[in-house]
């Protein structure tokens, strides 16, 4: 295989997309399946250790995982030539367009989730961690908004992964 082989490069980008995606969704599920349900059981004097040390580190890998997943995904869709068909969910594309419909729904779900991470969860978590100043009421509101949006992303991750796997393995 030549290094100029186009397929070799698309596989490389796909590999980056999946590794970044595991980093992102792995942390999303850690927050929702492990950290959030466990916090009420942790003695109050130990909770600052989670919020001050584990949370900032986890949020770093979480949000940049989301960014690189989106970036690699868009590059991959462009390189494979289906980005426009996917954006319009295959509607109006030459038939059969099942894969474009599936990957398109997955892309839209993933993009909504990426937006939620960078523009809702992250700004609110900065208030919770105290890196952005806020009143106690604002911190409580931020904790609620970040938590609910994180749950929305957990919900959306289930059909999003269905679409991604469907599109990659439907023949």
């Amino acid at each position: 295989m030549e290094l100029s082989d186009f397929n070799w490069w698309t596989q490389f980008i796909r590999w980056g997309h999946i590794i970044s995606g595991i980093m992102w969704i792995g942390h999303l599920w850690y927050f929702n399946f492990t950290q959030t349900p466990t916090m009420p059981k942790i003695p109050a004097e130990l909770r600052p250790a989670v919020v001050r040390f584990i949370l900032p580190e986890a949020l770093f890998w979480f949000r940049w995982g989301a960014m690189f997943t989106l970036g690699f995904g868009l590059i991959l869709a462009y390189m494979n030539g289906y980005i426009l068909d996917a954006i319009k969910l295959g509607i109006g594309s030459p038939s059969p367009h099942t894969k474009a419909t599936a990957i398109g729904i997955g892309m839209w779900l993933g993009t909504i989730m990426w937006f939620n991470v960078w523009f809702i969860i992250w700004p609110n978590q900065q208030k919770v961690m105290g890196t952005v100043s806020a009143t106690p009421d604002e911190v409580n509101a931020a904790r609620r908004m970040a938590g609910l949006t994180s749950r929305v992303n957990t919900l959306l991750s289930i059909p999003m992964l269905y679409c991604m796997v469907f599109a990659g393995h439907y023949y």
Partner: peptide
């Protein structure tokens, strides 16, 4: 909606339901 999202089990079930809906939409548009 908030009550549903506050429940992890409810969130997962809603995710499976939404997946079925998405699968039907993919089938319908194919």
């Amino acid at each position: 909606m908030e009550k549903l999202l506050n429940s992890l089990t409810g969130t997962i079930i809603a995710g499976f339901v939404l997946t079925v809906i998405v699968a039907v939409i993919i089938h319908a548009l194919a």
